[in-house]
Amino acid sequence: MSAHRNPPGLKTLGMWLFVLSDMLTFSTLLVVYSALRFANPAWPRPFSLNPGILFATIMTIVLLASSLTMVWAVDAIKRDQRKRTVQWLGATILGGAAFIALHLMEWCHLLTVENITPASNPWNVPLFGAVFFGVTGLHMAHVAAGLVYLSVLAAGVSRGTFCVEDVETGGLYWHFVDVVWMFVFPLVYLMAVKP
């Protein structure tokens, strides 16, 4: 590494740019979803209120909770409480892992019990499953990547190699994943509730 030191704020700006770019990626997916739904008027609406929507609501609240613990992790590192920071990061990772676990349970249920797969479903509009698994799958990949990211961050904070801006940047990413879900949940789940 070169000897110079960069001014603060670089990583924050870089992460914001990534977030904006990735928001466009998810927006593209949701636009594709909308266009395909327009083109297939018989789009199925299979989700029952209980367990379907209830389960997804719980997942949403779990993800929101992990955002709150992330906020506290950033607060802690700002006060230079490294141990506390690692604890809150740990809680965030736990929340993210719980979200993925719940999500996978739901996937398994849909795949095996309801017979909704990426390529087919009982209503003969195969794109329903394609959109569902495509959108939620890409989001889940982001959550999983976030878990790795936060783990590296936690390790670095406990070793003392990472500073305030690094945790803040990680926080930006994690909240962004949360923001994306705030659009996936209503558009993919709530708009497909059983009439």
Binding site: S21, D22, L24, T25, F26, T28, L29, V32, P118, A119, S120, P126, L127, G129, A130, F133, G134, L138
Partner: peptide
């Protein structure tokens, strides 16, 4: 950022049987 999901969806069409 727009080409990337386009490519991913095309790959899904090829590998996961979506349409």
């Amino acid at each position: 950022a727009v080409l990337l999901p386009g490519g991913v969806l095309l790959l899904l069409d090829r590998l996961a049987g979506t349409s």
